[in-house]
Protein backbone atom coordinates (compact mmCIF):
# COMPACT_ATOMS: atom_id res chain seq x y z
CA UNK A 1 0.00 0.00 0.00
CA UNK A 2 1.46 3.30 -1.11
CA UNK A 3 0.59 6.42 0.85
CA UNK A 4 0.96 10.09 0.05
CA UNK A 5 0.52 12.85 2.59
CA UNK A 6 -0.73 16.32 1.70
CA UNK A 7 0.36 18.90 4.23
CA UNK A 8 3.70 18.88 6.01
CA UNK A 9 2.78 20.83 9.11
CA UNK A 10 2.29 19.39 12.58
CA UNK A 11 -0.42 16.95 11.49
CA UNK A 12 1.38 15.78 8.35
CA UNK A 13 4.50 15.15 10.42
CA UNK A 14 2.54 13.28 13.08
CA UNK A 15 0.74 11.11 10.54
CA UNK A 16 4.03 10.34 8.80
CA UNK A 17 5.41 9.03 12.10
CA UNK A 18 2.30 6.83 12.36
CA UNK A 19 2.68 5.44 8.85
CA UNK A 20 6.28 4.56 9.66
CA UNK A 21 4.90 2.09 12.21
CA UNK A 22 2.91 0.21 9.54
CA UNK A 23 3.81 -1.96 6.57
CA UNK A 24 2.52 0.75 4.25
CA UNK A 25 4.98 2.74 2.17
CA UNK A 26 4.97 6.48 2.60
CA UNK A 27 6.10 7.46 -0.86
CA UNK A 28 5.14 11.09 -1.32
CA UNK A 29 4.69 14.43 0.40
CA UNK A 30 2.94 17.49 -0.94
CA UNK A 31 3.11 20.86 0.79
CA UNK A 32 2.46 24.42 -0.25
CA UNK A 33 6.08 24.71 -1.32
CA UNK A 34 8.68 22.08 -2.06
CA UNK A 35 10.87 23.55 0.66
CA UNK A 36 8.20 22.87 3.27
CA UNK A 37 7.80 19.27 2.08
CA UNK A 38 11.50 18.46 1.81
CA UNK A 39 12.48 17.85 5.46
CA UNK A 40 9.59 15.45 6.03
CA UNK A 41 10.16 13.70 2.69
CA UNK A 42 13.86 13.29 3.46
CA UNK A 43 13.13 11.88 6.90
CA UNK A 44 10.99 9.08 5.46
CA UNK A 45 12.73 8.61 2.12
CA UNK A 46 9.68 9.90 0.31
CA UNK A 47 9.45 12.03 -2.79
CA UNK A 48 8.37 15.65 -2.88
CA UNK A 49 5.53 16.17 -5.32
CA UNK A 50 4.62 19.66 -6.51
CA UNK A 51 0.89 19.06 -6.04
CA UNK A 52 -1.74 16.46 -5.24
CA UNK A 53 -2.57 15.83 -8.91
CA UNK A 54 0.97 14.75 -9.72
CA UNK A 55 1.14 12.45 -6.68
CA UNK A 56 -2.21 10.71 -7.26
CA UNK A 57 -1.09 8.26 -9.98
CA UNK A 58 1.62 6.89 -7.64
CA UNK A 59 -0.41 6.22 -4.47
CA UNK A 60 -3.23 4.03 -3.16
CA UNK A 61 -4.11 6.29 -0.24
CA UNK A 62 -4.09 10.05 0.17
CA UNK A 63 -3.72 11.31 3.73
CA UNK A 64 -5.02 14.88 3.86
CA UNK A 65 -3.41 16.99 6.60
CA UNK A 66 -4.05 20.42 5.14
CA UNK A 67 -6.05 23.34 6.53
CA UNK A 68 -9.75 22.53 6.93
CA UNK A 69 -11.04 24.58 4.03
CA UNK A 70 -8.94 22.50 1.58
CA UNK A 71 -10.24 19.08 2.69
CA UNK A 72 -13.28 19.09 0.43
CA UNK A 73 -11.61 19.78 -2.86
CA UNK A 74 -8.66 17.47 -2.22
CA UNK A 75 -10.95 14.60 -1.20
CA UNK A 76 -13.01 14.99 -4.36
CA UNK A 77 -9.82 15.01 -6.38
CA UNK A 78 -8.49 11.86 -4.71
CA UNK A 79 -11.82 10.05 -4.97
CA UNK A 80 -12.06 10.92 -8.66
CA UNK A 81 -8.71 9.21 -9.10
CA UNK A 82 -9.97 6.15 -7.23
CA UNK A 83 -7.78 6.64 -4.16
CA UNK A 84 -8.71 5.98 -0.54
CA UNK A 85 -8.79 9.08 1.62
CA UNK A 86 -7.74 9.70 5.17
CA UNK A 87 -8.78 13.18 6.20
CA UNK A 88 -7.84 15.18 9.27
CA UNK A 89 -10.71 16.50 11.32
CA UNK A 90 -12.92 18.44 10.66
CA UNK A 91 -14.03 16.34 7.70
CA UNK A 92 -15.19 19.46 5.88
CA UNK A 93 -15.67 23.12 6.61
CA UNK A 94 -19.44 22.64 6.20
CA UNK A 95 -21.92 19.79 6.43
CA UNK A 96 -22.68 20.22 2.74
CA UNK A 97 -19.00 19.77 1.91
CA UNK A 98 -18.78 16.69 4.12
CA UNK A 99 -21.82 15.21 2.42
CA UNK A 100 -20.30 15.69 -1.02
CA UNK A 101 -17.05 14.12 0.14
CA UNK A 102 -18.89 11.06 1.45
CA UNK A 103 -20.93 10.83 -1.73
CA UNK A 104 -17.86 11.12 -3.96
CA UNK A 105 -15.98 8.41 -2.07
CA UNK A 106 -18.99 6.10 -2.11
CA UNK A 107 -19.40 6.53 -5.87
CA UNK A 108 -15.70 5.95 -6.41
CA UNK A 109 -15.76 2.88 -4.18
CA UNK A 110 -12.99 4.22 -1.97
CA UNK A 111 -12.84 4.50 1.80
CA UNK A 112 -13.06 7.84 3.61
CA UNK A 113 -11.58 7.78 7.10
CA UNK A 114 -11.72 10.88 9.27
CA UNK A 115 -9.00 11.40 11.86
CA UNK A 116 -10.82 12.24 15.08
CA UNK A 117 -7.84 11.31 17.19
CA UNK A 118 -9.55 11.83 20.55
CA UNK A 119 -11.33 8.51 20.01
CA UNK A 120 -7.85 6.94 20.00
CA UNK A 121 -6.58 8.56 23.17
CA UNK A 122 -6.34 5.76 25.71
CA UNK A 123 -8.19 7.60 28.46
CA UNK A 124 -11.04 8.62 26.15
CA UNK A 125 -11.28 5.16 24.60
CA UNK A 126 -11.29 3.64 28.09
CA UNK A 127 -14.08 5.94 29.27
CA UNK A 128 -16.07 5.00 26.17
CA UNK A 129 -15.63 1.29 26.84
CA UNK A 130 -16.61 1.80 30.48
CA UNK A 131 -19.85 3.43 29.31
CA UNK A 132 -20.39 0.59 26.82
CA UNK A 133 -19.91 -1.94 29.64
CA UNK A 134 -22.70 -0.14 31.49
CA UNK A 135 -20.52 0.85 34.42
CA UNK A 136 -22.19 4.24 34.86
CA UNK A 137 -25.59 3.41 33.41
CA UNK A 138 -27.35 5.73 31.03
CA UNK A 139 -25.36 8.95 30.42
CA UNK A 140 -27.21 12.02 31.72
CA UNK A 141 -24.80 14.95 31.83
CA UNK A 142 -21.47 14.97 30.03
CA UNK A 143 -18.78 17.61 30.52
CA UNK A 144 -15.80 17.86 28.17
CA UNK A 145 -13.17 20.59 28.42
CA UNK A 146 -10.22 21.12 26.11
CA UNK A 147 -7.95 24.06 26.72
CA UNK A 148 -4.74 25.47 25.40
CA UNK A 149 -3.26 28.67 24.04
CA UNK A 150 -4.09 30.41 20.84
CA UNK A 151 -2.44 28.61 17.88
CA UNK A 152 0.46 30.77 16.77
CA UNK A 153 1.04 29.35 13.33
CA UNK A 154 2.48 31.89 10.92
CA UNK A 155 1.46 32.14 7.24
CA UNK A 156 -1.75 34.07 7.69
CA UNK A 157 -2.73 31.88 10.64
CA UNK A 158 -5.60 29.99 9.03
CA UNK A 159 -6.58 28.66 12.48
CA UNK A 160 -7.81 32.12 13.39
CA UNK A 161 -9.57 32.71 10.07
CA UNK A 162 -13.06 31.46 10.75
CA UNK A 163 -13.90 31.07 7.06
CA UNK A 164 -11.04 28.57 6.80
CA UNK A 165 -10.95 26.79 10.17
CA UNK A 166 -14.38 27.47 11.62
CA UNK A 167 -12.65 29.11 14.60
CA UNK A 168 -12.58 27.69 18.10
CA UNK A 169 -16.12 26.25 17.91
CA UNK A 170 -15.08 24.03 15.03
CA UNK A 171 -11.34 23.58 14.99
CA UNK A 172 -10.92 22.85 18.69
CA UNK A 173 -14.35 21.93 20.00
CA UNK A 174 -15.21 19.46 17.22
CA UNK A 175 -13.02 16.94 19.09
CA UNK A 176 -15.41 16.93 22.01
CA UNK A 177 -18.55 17.40 19.93
CA UNK A 178 -17.61 14.12 18.26
CA UNK A 179 -16.77 12.47 21.56
CA UNK A 180 -20.01 13.61 23.24
CA UNK A 181 -21.97 12.19 20.30
CA UNK A 182 -19.96 8.95 20.53
CA UNK A 183 -21.00 8.65 24.18
CA UNK A 184 -24.59 9.92 24.17
CA UNK A 185 -25.73 9.65 20.57
CA UNK A 186 -27.09 12.08 18.01
CA UNK A 187 -27.53 15.72 18.89
CA UNK A 188 -30.87 17.50 18.67
CA UNK A 189 -29.94 21.10 19.49
CA UNK A 190 -26.92 23.29 20.15
CA UNK A 191 -26.54 26.58 22.00
CA UNK A 192 -23.09 28.15 21.99
CA UNK A 193 -21.18 31.33 22.68
CA UNK A 194 -17.57 32.38 22.26
CA UNK A 195 -15.54 35.40 23.29
CA UNK A 196 -14.61 36.62 19.82
CA UNK A 197 -18.23 37.06 18.68
CA UNK A 198 -18.60 40.28 20.64
CA UNK A 199 -14.85 40.90 21.15
CA UNK A 200 -13.24 40.22 17.76
CA UNK A 201 -9.96 41.72 18.92
CA UNK A 202 -9.72 39.84 22.20
CA UNK A 203 -6.26 38.36 22.78
CA UNK A 204 -7.85 35.04 23.83
CA UNK A 205 -10.82 32.96 22.77
CA UNK A 206 -13.08 30.60 24.71
CA UNK A 207 -16.15 28.73 23.57
CA UNK A 208 -19.00 27.25 25.62
CA UNK A 209 -21.64 24.98 24.15
CA UNK A 210 -24.66 23.15 25.52
CA UNK A 211 -25.82 20.15 23.49
CA UNK A 212 -29.07 18.31 23.85
CA UNK A 213 -28.87 14.73 22.60
CA UNK A 214 -31.86 12.89 21.17
CA UNK A 215 -31.31 10.33 23.95
CA UNK A 216 -32.21 13.02 26.52
CA UNK A 217 -28.62 13.45 27.72
CA UNK A 218 -27.16 16.96 27.82
CA UNK A 219 -23.53 17.87 27.23
CA UNK A 220 -21.42 20.85 28.24
CA UNK A 221 -18.46 21.43 25.91
CA UNK A 222 -15.68 23.92 26.58
CA UNK A 223 -12.87 24.99 24.30
CA UNK A 224 -10.15 27.37 25.43
CA UNK A 225 -7.49 29.26 23.56
CA UNK A 226 -6.98 31.42 26.61
CA UNK A 227 -4.20 29.79 28.63
CA UNK A 228 -0.55 30.75 28.61
CA UNK A 229 1.73 28.46 26.53
CA UNK A 230 2.53 25.62 26.79
CA UNK A 231 -0.65 24.74 28.73
CA UNK A 232 -2.77 21.92 27.41
CA UNK A 233 -5.48 20.45 29.62
CA UNK A 234 -8.47 18.28 29.04
CA UNK A 235 -11.21 17.25 31.41
CA UNK A 236 -13.93 14.65 31.06
CA UNK A 237 -16.96 13.86 33.16
CA UNK A 238 -19.61 11.36 32.20
CA UNK A 239 -22.38 11.20 34.78
CA UNK A 240 -24.82 8.37 34.29
CA UNK A 241 -27.83 7.13 36.21
CA UNK A 242 -25.68 4.61 38.07
CA UNK A 243 -22.24 6.13 38.24
CA UNK A 244 -19.75 8.79 37.27
CA UNK A 245 -16.51 8.80 35.26
CA UNK A 246 -14.03 11.62 35.85
CA UNK A 247 -10.75 12.34 34.13
CA UNK A 248 -8.51 15.37 34.33
CA UNK A 249 -5.25 15.59 32.44
CA UNK A 250 -3.65 17.70 35.16
CA UNK A 251 -4.61 15.30 37.93
CA UNK A 252 -3.40 12.24 36.00
CA UNK A 253 -0.15 13.67 34.72
CA UNK A 254 2.47 11.12 35.81
CA UNK A 255 5.33 13.59 35.78
CA UNK A 256 5.45 16.88 37.61
CA UNK A 257 8.32 18.86 36.23
CA UNK A 258 9.83 21.19 38.81
CA UNK A 259 13.08 21.61 36.95
CA UNK A 260 14.23 25.11 36.04
CA UNK A 261 13.46 25.87 32.39
CA UNK A 262 16.44 26.18 30.05
CA UNK A 263 14.43 27.93 27.37
CA UNK A 264 10.96 29.34 27.09
CA UNK A 265 10.13 27.92 23.66
CA UNK A 266 6.66 26.46 23.32
CA UNK A 267 5.13 24.57 20.40
CA UNK A 268 2.92 26.27 17.81
CA UNK A 269 -0.18 24.50 19.04
CA UNK A 270 -0.92 23.08 22.46
CA UNK A 271 -0.53 19.33 22.65
CA UNK A 272 -1.48 16.68 25.15
CA UNK A 273 1.54 15.10 26.81
CA UNK A 274 0.86 12.14 29.06
CA UNK A 275 3.62 9.70 28.11
CA UNK A 276 2.26 6.45 26.71
CA UNK A 277 4.06 3.68 24.84
CA UNK A 278 2.29 4.42 21.58
CA UNK A 279 1.11 7.83 20.45
CA UNK A 280 -2.67 7.94 19.91
CA UNK A 281 -1.90 9.42 16.49
CA UNK A 282 0.02 6.25 15.66
CA UNK A 283 -2.73 4.02 17.08
CA UNK A 284 -5.11 5.87 14.79
CA UNK A 285 -2.99 5.43 11.65
CA UNK A 286 -2.44 1.74 12.45
CA UNK A 287 -6.18 1.21 12.81
CA UNK A 288 -6.86 3.06 9.56
CA UNK A 289 -4.24 0.92 7.85
CA UNK A 290 -6.01 -2.25 9.06
CA UNK A 291 -9.32 -0.84 7.90
CA UNK A 292 -7.88 -0.16 4.45
CA UNK A 293 -6.61 -3.74 4.32
CA UNK A 294 -10.16 -4.87 5.14
CA UNK A 295 -9.02 -6.43 8.42
CA UNK A 296 -11.27 -4.46 10.77
CA UNK A 297 -14.00 -1.85 11.05
CA UNK A 298 -13.10 1.73 11.82
CA UNK A 299 -14.24 3.04 15.19
CA UNK A 300 -15.29 6.19 13.34
CA UNK A 301 -17.21 6.44 10.09
CA UNK A 302 -17.24 9.26 7.59
CA UNK A 303 -20.85 9.85 8.65
CA UNK A 304 -19.62 10.38 12.23
CA UNK A 305 -17.21 12.95 10.82
CA UNK A 306 -20.07 14.69 9.02
CA UNK A 307 -22.22 14.68 12.17
CA UNK A 308 -19.40 16.34 14.11
CA UNK A 309 -19.12 19.03 11.42
CA UNK A 310 -22.87 19.53 11.62
CA UNK A 311 -22.69 20.12 15.41
CA UNK A 312 -19.80 22.56 14.98
CA UNK A 313 -21.62 24.40 12.23
CA UNK A 314 -24.69 24.66 14.46
CA UNK A 315 -22.51 26.00 17.29
CA UNK A 316 -21.08 28.65 14.97
CA UNK A 317 -24.58 29.58 13.84
CA UNK A 318 -25.82 29.70 17.41
CA UNK A 319 -22.98 31.95 18.53
CA UNK A 320 -23.69 34.27 15.60
CA UNK A 321 -27.48 34.42 16.05
CA UNK A 322 -27.81 34.06 19.83
CA UNK A 323 -30.40 31.32 19.32
CA UNK A 324 -30.38 27.59 19.92
CA UNK A 325 -30.00 25.73 16.63
CA UNK A 326 -31.98 22.56 15.93
CA UNK A 327 -30.13 19.93 13.95
CA UNK A 328 -31.64 18.11 11.00
CA UNK A 329 -31.49 14.36 11.11
CA UNK A 330 -28.66 13.40 8.75
CA UNK A 331 -29.60 10.78 6.22
Amino acid sequence: MKVGIVGAGFMGTTHAAGWAETEAELIGIVAETADEAKPLANQYNARVYPDLASMLPDVDVVDICTPTHQHHEMTLQAAAAGKHVICEKPLGRTTAQAREMIEACRKAGVKLLVAHVVRFFTEYALAKSSVMRGEVGKPGVIRLNRGSFRPKKPAGNWFLDESKSGGILMDLMIHDFDYARWIAGDVESVFAKKITTANPNAPVDYGLAILKHRSGAISHITGSWAYPPPTFRTHLEIAGDSGLIEFDSADTSPILNLVAKTNSESPDVGLPSSPVSESPYTTQIKEFYSVLLGEKESRITAEDGMAAVQISEAAIQSAATGKAVLLEVLS
Binding site: K138, P139, G140, V141, S189, F191, I210, K212, G216, A217, I218, A239, G240, D241
Partner: peptide, 16 residues
Protein backbone atom coordinates in the same frame (compact mmCIF):
# COMPACT_ATOMS: atom_id res chain seq x y z
CA UNK B 1 -31.56 22.50 29.17
CA UNK B 2 -32.73 20.06 31.80
CA UNK B 3 -33.36 16.35 32.06
CA UNK B 4 -34.26 13.68 34.56
CA UNK B 5 -31.91 10.78 33.98
CA UNK B 6 -30.30 10.57 37.43
CA UNK B 7 -32.75 9.18 40.00
CA UNK B 8 -35.40 9.06 37.26
CA UNK B 9 -37.69 6.78 39.22
CA UNK B 10 -37.25 8.47 42.59
CA UNK B 11 -38.15 12.12 41.96
CA UNK B 12 -40.50 14.34 39.95
CA UNK B 13 -38.12 17.22 39.34
CA UNK B 14 -35.19 17.75 37.00
CA UNK B 15 -31.92 16.25 38.21
CA UNK B 16 -29.73 17.46 35.34
Amino acid sequence: QTNKIFHANEVNVETG
